[in-house]
Design a protein around this nucleic acid. Structure first.
Lengths: 363, 363
DNA sequence: CTGAAAGCGCTAACAT
DNA sequence: ATGTTAGCGCTTTCAG
């Protein structure tokens, strides 16, 4: 027996108008809630709509209507499951929902091709704007996209050579802050776990680390920096290598939430979690329940999301002021792991350290 | 000074054809990679496309082409940031990417209206199908949506009265398993933290809990079950109430990942984490790094996502076999918290308990 | 091989 | 207050 049709044509305006015995435009008016329709007719139309299960085709509508907001934006991030992205995403959803805008999203998961595909898919579907956490790769196509009217706001990091709105933490200050915290607690040999340096975020954080060391006149970071770490597993291995090598560090600084988790795992395995200090950049869930609690420099993802949403809505509404980077401050949260004392505890409060700590965010 | 135009019309086929000096259709052919175009012409067209930055409008294309897959699906869940949803989502993205399908997504965050809005937004944007984690509310509109050709696969829980594909864990068996584990370790008074019972998931888990207790001839759950718990905070409070009340339980069973975290917090605050047993349903990140490690009955979100994706792709490709529920087994992972002994440790290996444990998943 | 015409579902601009 | 016409950007159908 042959399979029956799946060619289940959805009803169109024309179908409804035939059923209701009115013109196509009258139906359109009723559906769009325009005035100037006799209640009796409107009722008849409504009945036909219901009986046929008619739903307007927003794409055809948009096609004819031409440009203009359509009430949908998209969030495109590396991984919506990452705690940072998740909270940021949630803030965007909330801000948009309050204005009756739906928020769609996509993860590209380390694949720059996926990033492009996702953004273009959304743009093709005519979202009003995109909040994008960009990868490091080429973004020529972004420029072109903007020319076609899709608004873009970047989060977490800028794109080199692209003048766009961007909302992000002051990554450099965050790393500086974390480093100073460790210096103050008497550490001089600090291992740094970082991801790929071609990501702006990572580069900034490394720069902050170096700045703080230099200002405190602490020389060597040689051999203490592991870059290109791709995830929890690699960070764990890198930390183990550092701690079991020659002249190991007395403290660890993890450049990102996933790397922090790797560091925690490594310290556990070596049973050093009460002896080696650890500060993570980015907060991690349950950090306060671990033993010791994990000291972090936390970003404010909800604030970043809210600001990005606000900025995007402004652009969609026609704001044409020049693109501005927007830096959101970070906050150090001491929970125990970062306060484990190092060998130089007494010498720690050097003027240099204090001086750096008071330095303002760079703009 | 007046703001300059933003009316930056995107180039159309017509623009390209004018620039290249060919007909509109020829451009269309080149863009769509059809054969039967003279290389010379094709080259001219390609040049024009590049110089104008032309990008085809997939919506207009779809409008004319009529129905047919478009290479995009959507995942709509309560909260993409929930660890379960996040991993499931990721599995879908991977499965789809392998077939060159982009995956869009949305969270509705406890708001059934948001759920509907998101699904309809995607459907309106003509995704080929939707993977949906449904709320408990009415889903009439889902039926109608399917009539218009949007394929739907449910995950994590079914919708009452709706015959659709659904991929989910055997929640009842999971709860039974967890309960038996605690019984076997000598617990008879087990506190159960559950969320809203009108969510199928929660109801099934409570049923599994009851089944195990009944089979083991353990009477009272009276006063030991807290339902309607909405999140970590409420679960923490409920656990504290249980443990500081009259005749407190010697073990806790948490019906869901967020509730498990609440339970952990409560035990910490009361300093009972080494004396009161805890088993969570759903795995939680870092569960192994806590002290004690958290024993859980873990789902397999990656498998659920992969199966849902496969099922959806099948439907999109025209599979018309009847809708089938698909149960994915769960797995108990002992990590310490669930093995804290209770007062009845010696009497634990009753035949009843063993009998239940061997019962098969219900289908 | 290439092009002209018709129309997908909808709405803006005019009629009536 | 309602209907008619034209056309959004594209592809199909059918002629050249």
């Amino acid at each position: 027996m042959e399979q029956q049709v799946r060619q289940q044509r959805c009803p169109t305006l024309k179908d409804v108008s035939a059923q209701a015995g009115v013109s196509i435009k009258t139906v359109s008016r009723v559906v769009n809630g325009e005035t100037n329709v006799t209640p009796a007719l409107a009722e008849r139309v409504r009945a036909a709509v219901d009986s046929l299960g008619y739903a307007p085709d927003p794409l055809a509508s948009r096609l004819r209507r031409g440009r203009g907001p359509i009430g949908a934006v998209a969030v495109v991030v590396e991984d919506v499951a990452n705690p940072f992205s998740a909270v940021m995403h949630r803030a965007v959803v909330d801000a948009m929902a309050a204005r009756n805008v739906v928020t769609l999203s996509a993860s590209y998961d380390k694949d720059p091709g996926g990033e492009r595909a996702a953004v273009l898919a959304f743009a093709g579907r005519r979202v009003d704007g995109v909040i994008l956490m960009p990868t490091t790769a080429d973004h020529q196509w972004l420029d072109r996209l903007r020319e076609t009217g899709t608004q873009i706001v970047l989060v977490d990091r800028p794109v080199a050579g692209l003048q766009t709105d961007v909302v992000m933490s002051d990554h450099r200050a965050a790393a500086r802050r974390a480093t100073i915290h460790l210096l103050r607690h008497g550490h001089r040999r600090i291992g740094f776990l970082a991801d790929a340096p071609d990501v702006h975020t990572a580069a900034e954080r490394l720069a902050g680390f170096d700045e703080a060391l230099r200002a405190a006149a602490v020389a060597a970071r040689d051999g203490l920096v592991h870059e290109e770490l791709l995830g929890t597993g690699e960070a764990e291995q890198a930390a183990i290598d550092l701690l079991t090598g020659e002249d190991p560090p007395t403290a660890l600084l993890a450049g990102q939430n996933l790397l922090t988790i790797g560091a925690v795992r490594a310290l556990r395995r070596l049973n050093l979690h009460h002896r080696i200090a650890l500060v993570g950049i980015d907060d991690i869930p349950l950090a306060d329940l671990l033993d010791p609690g994990i000291t972090v420099v936390a970003q404010e993802p909800e604030r970043i999301g809210a600001l990005a949403a606000q900025q995007l809505l402004g652009r969609i509404a026609g704001d044409h002021t020049p693109a501005t980077p927007h830096l959101v401050p970070t906050q150090l949260i001491p929970r125990g792991s970062g306060e484990i004392p190092g060998p130089f505890l007494n010498a720690a409060n050097t003027p240099e350290v204090s001086a750096v700590e008071q330095s303002q965010p760079h703009f």
